[in-house]
Amino acid sequence: MHELGIVFYIIRDVKQAAQENGVEHVSTVVMNIGEVSTIIPEYLTDCWRWAADKEDLLRGCELKIEPIPAVTHCDGCGKDYPTVAHGKICPHCGSEKTWLLRGNEVEIKELRVEN
């Protein structure tokens, strides 16, 4: 039920932003979800549907997910490589001195409101 907890956090932030902007109904929430964020997009949208429809502000609101590919940087050779395919070991030079450049984001990108 990891994704449901995340959904409650999203709803809290969206409610706050809607209030600040005087919005009464949000039609789409766009998320940036990193490839190695441990979020499963289908679970997130399922939990979203269940929880969002309980709120007037979010009834029928779509949760749109824009994935962010994970990229790892290697300090050994200075190159970047796709994280999911190669993991912690650099495919260019075999070094273990690598770190995640991007791909663990769980971020609300924007709200879309129909006038």
Binding site: I6, Y9, I10, R12, D13, A17, N21, V23, S27, E105, V106, E107, I108, K109, E110, L111, R112, V113, E114, N115
Partner: peptide, 18 residues
């Protein structure tokens, strides 16, 4: 066509908790 207003948030879901 319908008008859609976009409100930019750009905020990590973990930010408030952190």
């Amino acid at each position: 066509m319908e008008n859609v207003k976009i409100i930019e948030i750009k905020k990590s879901v973990f930010e408030d908790n952190d």
